[in-house]
Simulated scan of single mutants.
Amino acid sequence: MEKRFKTMKERPVTERPYEKCLEYGPEALSDGELLAVILRSGTRECSALELAWKILEKHPVYKGIAGLYHMRIGMLKEIPGIGDVKAIEILCILELSKRLSRASAVGEISFNSPDSIAAYYMETMRHLEEERVLLLLLDGKHHLRKEIFLSQGTADSAYVSVKTIFVEAFRHEAVHIILLHNHPSGCPEPSREDLVLTRRIREAGELLGIPLTDHIIIGDRCFTSLREQGMM
């Protein structure tokens, strides 16, 4: 009969995440082993490693480490052995990973480049399950003056007030503006509503002297720049 290891100490050294990390480095660890290190302990019924794999398989649609981005605290706590503390630790690690991704790109971001902007916001927005709209306020040299969270909606849409956009633009003395939002479907193709909203903002910006320089839609590892596509 195959032996079932109850604790990490009973496992071979090559299956102990801490020892494996010390010997070979964190890059040698599997997704489950990395998560097990964060969890630190399991339950009476399963080890930290077995608990980690249960978490990675928990989401009904998104499996593996990518599924963690779609987990909420309630879903995590449905797993025996995951309480408030462990659930919060996991969610904080995910948020940290997003911020590290943005921090690594911040020195290279150019707000004249849709590719650069999309790369900067990709990890923050591509996993969201509802539409979120951001307004980027730029100075005369296209440096970011302020990032404004405009709205959060459903999986299909989010309401945006054109008046609010230009109130914020004047308040922060913006010279140019960029609109940015995500499509939870993962497909960044603009909807009819996206195009109508873009036209309204562009026309208002022309009248008020604060031009809309782009509207970027974030998908899953892909994006659409309406400026680049000639849709503005």
Rank of each mutant, 00 (worst) to 15 (best):
L195G: 07
M125C: 02
K146W: 00
L56E: 04
V13S: 11
R72M: 01
R4N: 11
L39S: 04
L212G: 04
E10S: 15
D156W: 05
I165V: 13
V167I: 08
E15N: 12
M231A: 13
R11V: 08
H59N: 12
E78P: 00
N182S: 02
G205R: 01
T224D: 01
K3V: 10
L135P: 08
S47Q: 04
K20E: 01
E206I: 12
M75C: 01
F149L: 10
F170W: 11
K9T: 13
M8V: 06
E2Y: 13
L138S: 00
E19S: 15
V167P: 00
K77L: 10
D214Q: 07
E23M: 11
L197W: 07
T43D: 12
G219K: 02
N182V: 01
P188V: 10
K58G: 02
D156R: 11
E95W: 03
K6P: 00
H176E: 03
E23C: 05
E95V: 03
H127C: 02
A158R: 04
V85R: 11
P60N: 03
K98G: 04
L51H: 12
I217C: 10
A118Y: 03
E78Y: 04
G205T: 00
G67I: 03
R171T: 12
S104C: 02
A103T: 03
C46K: 05
L138W: 00
L34D: 09
T164N: 12
P211H: 07
Y121V: 06
Q229Y: 15
I216V: 15
P12Q: 02
F111T: 00
L49F: 02
T198Q: 09
D31Q: 08
I217V: 15
L128V: 14
V106D: 04
T14F: 10
I217N: 03
R44Y: 14
E15M: 07
S47D: 12
H142P: 00
I93L: 15
A28E: 14
T224C: 11
F223Y: 15
H70S: 02
E95F: 03
L100Y: 14
D139A: 06
E129N: 07
Y18K: 08
V61D: 07
R44I: 11
E108C: 05
H172S: 12
I217Q: 02
R221T: 13
I90T: 01
V133F: 11
A48M: 00
T164G: 07
G64R: 06
D31T: 03
R126K: 14
K54I: 09
C222I: 15
A36F: 09
I177L: 10
A48L: 01
L180C: 03
